[in-house]
Protein backbone atom coordinates (compact mmCIF):
# COMPACT_ATOMS: atom_id res chain seq x y z
CA UNK A 1 0.00 0.00 0.00
CA UNK A 2 1.30 3.45 -0.93
CA UNK A 3 2.08 5.60 2.07
CA UNK A 4 0.00 8.81 2.29
CA UNK A 5 0.94 12.02 4.04
CA UNK A 6 -1.13 14.02 6.49
CA UNK A 7 -1.87 16.57 3.77
CA UNK A 8 -3.10 14.15 1.14
CA UNK A 9 -6.81 14.51 0.26
CA UNK A 10 -7.52 10.90 1.12
CA UNK A 11 -6.76 11.74 4.76
CA UNK A 12 -9.58 14.29 4.76
CA UNK A 13 -12.19 11.61 4.19
CA UNK A 14 -14.34 9.79 6.65
CA UNK A 15 -14.64 6.03 6.51
CA UNK A 16 -16.68 5.18 3.45
CA UNK A 17 -19.53 3.06 4.75
CA UNK A 18 -22.54 2.99 2.50
CA UNK A 19 -25.04 1.88 5.09
CA UNK A 20 -27.40 3.98 7.13
CA UNK A 21 -26.27 2.40 10.37
CA UNK A 22 -24.34 -0.59 11.59
CA UNK A 23 -26.45 -0.86 14.71
CA UNK A 24 -27.72 -4.37 15.28
CA UNK A 25 -30.16 -3.66 18.08
CA UNK A 26 -33.82 -2.72 17.61
CA UNK A 27 -33.07 1.01 17.37
CA UNK A 28 -36.33 1.62 15.50
CA UNK A 29 -38.51 0.43 18.37
CA UNK A 30 -38.30 3.53 20.58
CA UNK A 31 -39.13 6.05 17.83
CA UNK A 32 -41.93 3.77 16.62
CA UNK A 33 -43.47 3.54 20.11
CA UNK A 34 -43.02 7.27 20.62
CA UNK A 35 -44.74 7.94 17.31
CA UNK A 36 -47.63 5.68 18.28
CA UNK A 37 -47.91 7.28 21.74
CA UNK A 38 -47.91 10.85 20.46
CA UNK A 39 -50.30 10.03 17.63
CA UNK A 40 -52.74 8.43 20.08
CA UNK A 41 -52.68 11.67 22.08
CA UNK A 42 -53.26 13.80 18.99
CA UNK A 43 -56.14 11.65 17.75
CA UNK A 44 -57.78 11.51 21.16
CA UNK A 45 -57.28 15.24 21.60
CA UNK A 46 -59.04 16.08 18.34
CA UNK A 47 -61.98 13.84 19.24
CA UNK A 48 -62.19 15.22 22.79
CA UNK A 49 -62.11 18.84 21.73
CA UNK A 50 -65.07 18.27 19.42
CA UNK A 51 -67.02 16.08 21.85
CA UNK A 52 -69.74 17.93 23.77
CA UNK A 53 -70.06 15.62 26.80
CA UNK A 54 -67.45 17.32 28.94
CA UNK A 55 -69.32 17.97 32.17
CA UNK A 56 -70.82 15.60 34.72
CA UNK A 57 -71.39 17.39 38.00
CA UNK A 58 -69.01 17.76 39.86
CA UNK A 59 -66.48 16.72 37.23
CA UNK A 60 -65.28 18.70 34.26
CA UNK A 61 -63.15 17.09 31.57
CA UNK A 62 -59.58 18.53 31.59
CA UNK A 63 -59.55 19.09 27.82
CA UNK A 64 -62.48 21.50 28.22
CA UNK A 65 -61.35 23.29 31.35
CA UNK A 66 -61.53 26.20 31.99
CA UNK A 67 -64.94 26.57 30.41
CA UNK A 68 -65.24 30.25 29.54
CA UNK A 69 -68.32 30.63 27.33
CA UNK A 70 -72.02 30.99 28.00
CA UNK A 71 -72.57 27.75 26.12
CA UNK A 72 -70.92 25.91 29.04
CA UNK A 73 -73.34 24.44 31.61
CA UNK A 74 -73.57 26.78 34.60
CA UNK A 75 -71.75 24.48 37.00
CA UNK A 76 -68.93 24.00 34.50
CA UNK A 77 -68.06 27.68 34.13
CA UNK A 78 -64.78 28.64 35.68
CA UNK A 79 -65.56 30.66 38.86
CA UNK A 80 -69.07 31.03 37.45
CA UNK A 81 -67.75 33.39 34.77
CA UNK A 82 -68.33 33.33 31.03
CA UNK A 83 -66.05 36.07 29.65
CA UNK A 84 -66.53 34.90 26.09
CA UNK A 85 -70.27 35.44 26.31
CA UNK A 86 -72.83 33.85 24.08
CA UNK A 87 -71.29 34.77 20.73
CA UNK A 88 -68.83 31.93 21.14
CA UNK A 89 -70.51 28.71 20.14
CA UNK A 90 -67.57 26.51 19.21
CA UNK A 91 -66.36 23.76 21.62
CA UNK A 92 -64.95 25.42 24.79
CA UNK A 93 -61.78 23.33 24.60
CA UNK A 94 -60.71 25.21 21.49
CA UNK A 95 -60.30 28.39 23.52
CA UNK A 96 -57.57 27.00 25.73
CA UNK A 97 -56.16 24.25 23.53
CA UNK A 98 -53.16 26.36 22.52
CA UNK A 99 -51.86 26.86 26.05
CA UNK A 100 -51.09 23.31 27.21
CA UNK A 101 -50.60 22.32 23.56
CA UNK A 102 -47.97 24.99 23.03
CA UNK A 103 -46.28 24.10 26.29
CA UNK A 104 -45.91 20.47 25.27
CA UNK A 105 -45.03 21.29 21.69
CA UNK A 106 -42.11 23.50 22.72
CA UNK A 107 -41.10 21.35 25.72
CA UNK A 108 -37.47 20.22 25.52
CA UNK A 109 -38.43 16.61 26.12
CA UNK A 110 -41.20 16.53 23.53
CA UNK A 111 -38.91 18.24 21.06
CA UNK A 112 -36.50 15.37 21.41
CA UNK A 113 -39.28 12.83 21.03
CA UNK A 114 -40.92 14.28 17.93
CA UNK A 115 -37.69 15.30 16.25
CA UNK A 116 -36.71 11.67 16.56
CA UNK A 117 -39.98 9.89 15.87
CA UNK A 118 -41.77 12.22 13.42
CA UNK A 119 -38.97 14.11 11.69
CA UNK A 120 -36.33 11.35 11.99
CA UNK A 121 -33.71 13.93 12.79
CA UNK A 122 -32.18 11.58 13.79
CA UNK A 123 -34.45 8.55 14.33
CA UNK A 124 -31.92 7.11 16.79
CA UNK A 125 -28.34 7.76 17.81
CA UNK A 126 -25.80 6.84 15.13
CA UNK A 127 -28.56 6.23 12.58
CA UNK A 128 -28.39 8.54 9.58
CA UNK A 129 -31.24 10.96 9.10
CA UNK A 130 -32.90 11.13 5.68
CA UNK A 131 -32.62 14.92 5.22
CA UNK A 132 -29.99 16.43 2.97
CA UNK A 133 -29.86 19.77 4.81
CA UNK A 134 -30.14 20.70 8.44
CA UNK A 135 -30.30 24.06 10.18
CA UNK A 136 -31.79 22.96 13.49
CA UNK A 137 -33.35 25.68 15.59
CA UNK A 138 -31.31 28.49 14.07
CA UNK A 139 -34.03 29.90 11.82
CA UNK A 140 -37.77 30.00 11.25
CA UNK A 141 -39.91 28.13 12.02
CA UNK A 142 -37.98 26.19 14.67
CA UNK A 143 -36.37 29.24 16.22
CA UNK A 144 -39.85 29.86 17.68
CA UNK A 145 -39.16 27.01 20.09
CA UNK A 146 -37.38 29.64 22.18
CA UNK A 147 -40.78 30.92 23.29
CA UNK A 148 -41.12 27.89 25.59
CA UNK A 149 -40.84 29.83 28.85
CA UNK A 150 -43.92 31.90 28.03
CA UNK A 151 -45.92 28.72 27.50
CA UNK A 152 -44.56 27.57 30.84
CA UNK A 153 -46.09 30.60 32.59
CA UNK A 154 -49.43 29.86 30.93
CA UNK A 155 -49.16 26.14 31.72
CA UNK A 156 -48.78 26.96 35.42
CA UNK A 157 -52.13 28.76 35.23
CA UNK A 158 -53.75 25.81 33.46
CA UNK A 159 -52.23 23.44 36.04
CA UNK A 160 -53.69 25.57 38.83
CA UNK A 161 -57.11 25.46 37.18
CA UNK A 162 -56.98 21.66 36.88
CA UNK A 163 -56.02 21.49 40.56
CA UNK A 164 -59.00 23.74 41.35
CA UNK A 165 -61.25 21.40 39.33
CA UNK A 166 -59.91 18.46 41.32
CA UNK A 167 -60.71 20.26 44.59
CA UNK A 168 -64.24 21.02 43.37
CA UNK A 169 -64.63 17.31 42.62
CA UNK A 170 -64.74 16.77 46.38
CA UNK A 171 -68.27 18.23 46.30
CA UNK A 172 -71.26 16.18 45.27
CA UNK A 173 -73.74 17.18 42.58
CA UNK A 174 -75.63 19.30 45.13
CA UNK A 175 -72.53 21.27 46.05
CA UNK A 176 -71.94 19.60 49.44
CA UNK A 177 -68.33 18.93 50.39
CA UNK A 178 -67.14 15.46 51.37
CA UNK A 179 -67.82 13.58 48.16
CA UNK A 180 -65.09 11.26 46.97
CA UNK A 181 -65.71 9.31 43.82
CA UNK A 182 -63.40 7.50 41.48
CA UNK A 183 -63.53 10.60 39.28
CA UNK A 184 -62.30 12.74 42.19
CA UNK A 185 -59.27 10.52 42.63
CA UNK A 186 -58.56 10.42 38.90
CA UNK A 187 -58.76 14.22 38.60
CA UNK A 188 -56.57 14.62 41.69
CA UNK A 189 -53.91 12.22 40.39
CA UNK A 190 -53.99 14.03 37.07
CA UNK A 191 -53.53 17.44 38.72
CA UNK A 192 -50.53 16.14 40.70
CA UNK A 193 -48.88 14.63 37.61
CA UNK A 194 -49.54 17.79 35.59
CA UNK A 195 -47.81 19.84 38.28
CA UNK A 196 -44.86 17.43 38.49
CA UNK A 197 -44.45 17.73 34.73
CA UNK A 198 -44.97 21.50 34.60
CA UNK A 199 -42.66 22.37 37.50
CA UNK A 200 -39.98 19.97 36.24
CA UNK A 201 -39.74 21.97 33.02
CA UNK A 202 -36.27 23.09 31.95
CA UNK A 203 -37.47 26.69 31.68
CA UNK A 204 -38.78 26.54 35.24
CA UNK A 205 -35.39 25.21 36.32
CA UNK A 206 -33.73 28.16 34.61
CA UNK A 207 -36.15 30.72 36.03
CA UNK A 208 -35.85 29.49 39.64
CA UNK A 209 -32.07 29.83 39.79
CA UNK A 210 -30.51 28.23 36.72
CA UNK A 211 -29.67 31.63 35.31
CA UNK A 212 -27.62 32.53 38.40
CA UNK A 213 -23.91 31.94 38.77
CA UNK A 214 -23.86 32.48 42.54
CA UNK A 215 -26.24 30.01 44.15
CA UNK A 216 -24.73 30.83 47.54
CA UNK A 217 -26.07 34.39 47.37
CA UNK A 218 -29.62 33.18 46.74
CA UNK A 219 -30.29 30.28 49.15
CA UNK A 220 -34.08 30.22 48.67
CA UNK A 221 -33.83 30.23 44.90
CA UNK A 222 -31.15 27.55 45.15
CA UNK A 223 -33.50 25.39 47.22
CA UNK A 224 -36.22 25.88 44.64
CA UNK A 225 -33.75 24.99 41.87
CA UNK A 226 -32.74 21.84 43.74
CA UNK A 227 -36.39 20.80 44.03
CA UNK A 228 -37.11 21.56 40.38
CA UNK A 229 -33.93 19.71 39.35
CA UNK A 230 -35.24 16.57 41.06
CA UNK A 231 -38.47 16.79 39.09
CA UNK A 232 -36.51 17.70 35.97
CA UNK A 233 -34.46 14.51 36.22
CA UNK A 234 -37.75 12.63 35.65
CA UNK A 235 -39.19 15.07 33.14
CA UNK A 236 -39.55 12.42 30.47
CA UNK A 237 -41.44 10.09 32.79
CA UNK A 238 -43.71 12.89 34.01
CA UNK A 239 -44.28 14.00 30.41
CA UNK A 240 -45.66 10.59 29.49
CA UNK A 241 -47.45 9.98 32.79
CA UNK A 242 -49.21 13.35 32.69
CA UNK A 243 -50.05 12.99 29.01
CA UNK A 244 -51.82 9.71 29.66
CA UNK A 245 -53.32 10.84 32.97
CA UNK A 246 -54.95 13.82 31.29
CA UNK A 247 -56.32 11.55 28.56
CA UNK A 248 -57.62 9.02 31.09
CA UNK A 249 -59.16 11.72 33.29
CA UNK A 250 -60.76 13.39 30.29
CA UNK A 251 -62.15 10.15 28.90
CA UNK A 252 -63.45 9.12 32.31
CA UNK A 253 -65.43 12.34 32.76
CA UNK A 254 -66.84 12.09 29.24
CA UNK A 255 -67.92 8.49 29.83
CA UNK A 256 -69.63 9.52 33.08
CA UNK A 257 -71.30 12.42 31.26
CA UNK A 258 -72.50 10.08 28.52
CA UNK A 259 -73.86 7.65 31.12
CA UNK A 260 -71.52 4.85 30.04
CA UNK A 261 -70.00 4.82 33.53
CA UNK A 262 -72.77 4.99 36.08
CA UNK A 263 -71.79 2.87 39.06
CA UNK A 264 -72.05 4.32 42.62
CA UNK A 265 -69.10 6.53 43.62
CA UNK A 266 -68.24 7.12 40.00
Amino acid sequence: MTQTTAESPIRKQRAQLNVRTLRTDRWWLTPALTFAGLMSFLIYGIWAILDKSYFAEPYIAPFSSPCLATSCPEGARFLGLAPFGDWYTLPPGLLILGLPGGFRLTCYYYRKSYYRSFWLSPPACAVSEPHTKYSGETRLPLIIQNVHRYFFYLAVVIGAILAYDAVLAFRDEHGNWGHVGLGTLILLANAVLIFCYTLGCHSCRHITAGRLNHFSKHPLRYKAWTFVSKLNARHQQFAWASMYSVMIADLYVRLVAKGVINFPFA
Partner: peptide, 15 residues
Protein backbone atom coordinates in the same frame (compact mmCIF):
# COMPACT_ATOMS: atom_id res chain seq x y z
CA UNK B 1 -20.55 28.22 18.04
CA UNK B 2 -23.90 27.08 16.67
CA UNK B 3 -25.92 26.31 19.81
CA UNK B 4 -29.09 26.82 17.77
CA UNK B 5 -28.20 23.80 15.64
CA UNK B 6 -28.68 21.54 18.65
CA UNK B 7 -32.16 20.02 18.58
CA UNK B 8 -31.62 18.39 21.96
CA UNK B 9 -32.10 14.80 20.81
CA UNK B 10 -29.70 13.77 23.58
CA UNK B 11 -27.44 11.37 21.69
CA UNK B 12 -24.43 13.12 23.26
CA UNK B 13 -25.78 12.25 26.70
CA UNK B 14 -26.51 8.67 25.65
CA UNK B 15 -22.96 7.95 24.54
Amino acid sequence: HGLGYCNITKCCTEV
